[in-house]
């Protein structure tokens, strides 16, 4: 029932190559800090934000993939930023690394690896003009990109037909 409120999903042969490449590019924003030579998670996030706002209007397909890429990157970046702040605090306080911290590093290492694998899969799918839904972020991106927005009331329309018609 809810499906009626969403725009129809395009099939791969309906999506131009240019849109596919833009959609794929969204997932490569996670490597932005590597290009800058600074291993700080915020760089990736900023790059994804810029990419999202520059590309979201190109098409719903690009909007979907760049939204999914951006939002899925937020928790990973937050976890990585916590690791950096925690690491700095340990160095400032007593200069030795605790067991809890190393365990946390291993945990976020696994998260980053999983995120990396899924992002690559999503990028490949996007290049082929396909959809790929991440848990939570996939549904959210679909909702944002494909939901049919409420029609404006006719009284608010600026361009109107001539009188008498």
């Amino acid at each position: 029932m809810e499906q009626q409120n969403y725009h129809p999903i395009p099939q791969p042969d309906e999506i131009p190559i240019r849109e596919r490449e833009d959609a794929m590019g969204a997932y490569f924003m996670m490597f932005a800090s590597l290009a800058g030579g600074i291993p700080f998670p915020l760089i990736n996030l900023i790059a994804s934000f810029i990419y999202y706002f520059l590309n979201k209007s190109k098409s719903r397909f690009v909007h979907f993939h760049s939204h999914q890429s951006l939002t899925s990157q937020i928790p990973v970046s937050v976890l990585n930023a916590i690791a950096i702040v925690w690491g700095i605090l340990l160095i400032v306080n007593n200069f030795h690394i605790t067991r809890d911290f190393i365990t946390y590093l291993i945990a976020i290492g696994i998260v980053n690896l999983v995120y990396f694998i899924f992002s690559i899969i999503a990028a490949v799918k996007a290049r082929k003009g396909k959809f790929y839904y991440f848990i939570f972020f996939g549904k959210w991106a679909y909702h944002v990109a494909y939901k049919i927005k409420d029609q404006k009331l006719s009284s608010e329309n600026i361009n109107k037909p001539p009188k008498g018609f």
């Binding site: 200069f95 690394i97 365990t103």
Partner: peptide, 23 residues
């Protein structure tokens, strides 16, 4: 899932208690 992963790593003692990495 993240917290279960982290808790599992702690419970399984992936990192030994006496680890001490000094600079």
């Amino acid at each position: 899932a993240f917290f279960i992963l982290w808790a599992s790593l702690i419970i399984l003692k992936i990192v030994p208690d006496d680890i001490e990495i000094n600079i």
